[in-house]
Design a binder for these strands. Structure first.
Lengths: 219, 219
DNA sequence: GTCTATAGGCTGATAGAC
DNA sequence: GTCTATCAGCCTATAGAC
């Protein structure tokens, strides 16, 4: 159903194209990345893109579908863990960071897709996202329900969590460059440090209310 | 030094091109937005872009410089206000939302610029950003110093604040579209509601530690 | 599977009439 | 200041040799 991968080198070229495409689509956008450049980065011939993916758009969609699927499918695992919500939220944040480590260009590519209004988002790709979002939302919902988290809107909160993570990683290359050129007037924050900071920030943000002076909740 | 605006209609055409460019660069990226499309949206002739800005890149840079400047300059005002840090942070967040209301496409355009590694960021534009960042950082630093905020890293925190805001606004058009098509499995969050939520979330995240059970601070 | 050559479309830029 | 006409360059796609 997918070309029944026969040769060995064919798999390699295909994968190289997927990887190169991800990087260049992330860095320069769909229109800014030329097939010429992608092929060169993949050390392949540009005709190979038509061969494997039927064209530029085919490559783009293949990245969205094939790279995204295994990544997001893994998040599903976080659904089953039965642990307090704050801990599960932290796990999600660390998991997100680990994902970026393995696919450094994915967040930028996906964000660009979002900025473009999701022109290339078919139902399949959209489904992956919704399920990613659902995981976070469920953690938050459960936490609110069981009062291990403050009473917040799970959907709005989930946007804040994703936003704080995505924005950092997606702008990190720019900060790196500016730092390298001495144009960043502070030291470059390490991804690690940010992730730990952010997890803590969210834990604090969602910690159940300490009862206000004067009022008192039962228990 | 800038053409010493003589005619009346000339100003109008110029401004229309700036506005149209902002929208299209935001929605489709630098390479995705054609001069043809921009001119059409501005109800102008595409030759006018060369006339006023000397080309596509000139238009792009003009937007970055001219639209950004007044917007970011206003944030400078937030520097002088002498009020408790939590209140000033909230003011910043509301100010940011108000800015987006007046320039709905600016965040996306700027974010795209960041994703591209800041290829078009000259020293002037970069300076505007750094001063925007500085405002938030200063609020946080002061709050930490005076203990009206929890002891957090001001720089990391400022990234979380900006991230949570930018991500929401930049992805909002996508959610709107999905909602319109009935593909969003929850109700569309209103910008207002998000901003209020986010301000509160940050206030909670940064609230000075409640004394741990056993320990005790004064009062 | 890989590569070269080339067709055909679109884009950015600009000369020159008004 | 505005517009039409035009052109060179780059880009995607693909036919066909190996």
């Amino acid at each position: 159903m997918k070309g029944s991968a026969s040769r060995k080198s064919s798999v390699t070229t295909r994968d190289a194209l997927l990887a190169a495409g991800t990087r260049l689509f992330a860095q320069r956008g769909f229109d800014g990345a030329s097939l010429e450049t992608i092929a060169r980065l993949a050390r392949a011939n540009k005709a190979m893109i038509s061969y494997y993916f039927g064209g530029k758009e085919g490559l783009y969609r293949a990245i969205l579908a094939e790279t995204l699927e295994p990544v997001l499918r893994r998040t599903e695992g976080l659904r089953k863990v039965s642990r307090p919500a704050p801990e599960r939220l932290q796990t999600f944040i660390f998991y997100f960071a680990e994902m970026v480590e393995h696919h450094p260009d994915l967040p930028a590519m996906i964000l660009r897709e979002a900025l473009s209004g999701g022109r290339h988002l078919d139902e399949r790709a959209l489904g992956y996202f919704l399920s990613l979002f659902a995981v976070v939302r469920e953690i938050l919902e459960e936490g609110v329900r069981r009062k291990s988290l403050r009473k917040v809107d799970p959907f709005l909160t989930h946007l804040s969590v994703i936003g704080g993570l995505v924005f950092f990683f997606v702008t990190h290359p720019l900060r790196e460059r500016l730092a390298r050129e001495g144009r960043l007037p502070m030291k470059l924050p390490a991804p690690d440090a940010y992730v730990r900071h952010f997890a803590l920030l969210m834990i604090h943000a969602l910690k159940p209310e300490a009862h206000a002076p004067g009022s008192r909740t039962r228990r």
